[in-house]
Design a protein around this nucleic acid. Structure first.
Lengths: 205, 205
DNA sequence: CCTATTTCATAGCAGACGATATGAAATTCG
DNA sequence: CGAATTTCATATCGTCTGCTATGAAATAGG
């Protein structure tokens, strides 16, 4: 089994756009205005391509969103690696909060978190997309939870600590910070929220 | 100045529906599927009235949502009263978290928080509605912040406590709990999040 | 150079969107 | 009872939605 990275130039007229580039433009549009409330017309304008090109390259709007979502979330291994390389679960959690506060107020990207806002609500027909977003959230939470459990097993946290509740609290806080970021709150407010919340972390025994 | 509660029956055909009842149905629809992603057709079906009746009674979809939002949030005095009657800012915050966890998983209402989800994203033309929602969030946060400041002035909290950051953390956590509730997490998870987060509360000096 | 292949831009599909014109039905007032 | 008033249900309005049929343009292989 081998990964085929070769751009074997097939016959026919060549693509006039870079797929990764326009996917990133689509991601930014969804991030800004949500899944259902970003129209195909909005997307083609943001991507600089026509509707038939979009459908040929990505299938339909739903598949385009799912690809944009995966681009936003990044590879799961990256999160796992960051958690593994952190000096402690506490440091990892604190870093997630700080990184989120910075990313949600970056300035050159839309405010808040794409995962938190783009499918926060929607008509009855998009529950499958909402579930895909929820699954990513759960994956991140579970990874953090296991990192906490690892520290607990190593005696770095008290025996009565609750890895599940701690991880859920961090994820909830991050998603809530996204709401405030989209309200227009500044970066320092979000950073302060994360710093204060870490006071809930169990002390070393 | 006197409040006119008299239902002075005007001439003409009487209303065939109760305004408060259908407004509540509209609120539930918006709560479930969001502002932009709930169509007027969805609303008339949920309210049991026709489109012309909706427009005659509420103006347009935007005004209907704003009324539904105010119905959901309740009178500002109620929040203020709850904060004033609480034994402490800490107890008030903990109660807000517990009440939210219960409300977001009530079963007979949509999951999560209408304020958190219904305008989390939207097209460019609804920023005014998003700002109205954000204003309610800020009002609640400010009220909590002042309650915390009051406890600080009374010496019930350490001098280095930060009422603004503490209040923002509670609001962020509540809005984040709404995201997890809509993901389908159970009530105990949400309650645990609130309980654990209260560990970040500054101890009595 | 010619054909096959692929993507291009234009134009348009059926349906849903928010909102309304229209006239009949139901009430109060004189 | 008759006139005025208000709400009712029906039938749309123009615009936008996600999506695609069509034929011209641009490349590769023979």
């Amino acid at each position: 089994m081998e990964i085929q990275t070769a751009p074997v130039r097939r016959a026919g007229r060549p693509l006039s756009f870079d797929r990764d580039t326009v996917l990133r433009q689509a991601m930014l549009a969804f991030w800004d205005h949500g899944y259902e409330t970003t129209s195909v017309s909005d997307l083609t304008a943001a991507m600089g391509i026509t509707a038939p090109s979009l459908y040929a390259a990505f299938g339909d709007k739903k598949q385009l969103f799912l690809e944009a979502m995966r681009l936003y979330a990044g590879p799961p291994e990256a999160i796992q690696a960051a958690l593994d390389s952190a000096p402690s679960a506490r440091a990892a959690a604190h870093d997630m909060l700080r990184t989120s506060a910075l990313a949600f107020t970056a300035g050159d990207t839309p405010k808040g978190c794409l995962l938190a806002s783009s499918t926060a609500s929607g008509s009855a027909g998009i529950s499958d997309v909402q579930q895909a977003v929820a699954a990513i959230r759960l994956t991140i939470q579970t990874a953090l939870e296991q990192r906490i459990a690892k520290d607990m097993a190593a005696g770095l946290l008290p025996d009565d600590a609750s890895p599940g509740a701690l991880a859920a609290m961090v994820i909830a806080l991050i998603q809530g910070m996204s709401v405030l970021a989209r309200d227009g709150r500044d970066r320092d407010t979000l950073l302060a929220i994360g710093d204060i919340a870490m006071g809930a972390w169990p002390p070393c025994p």
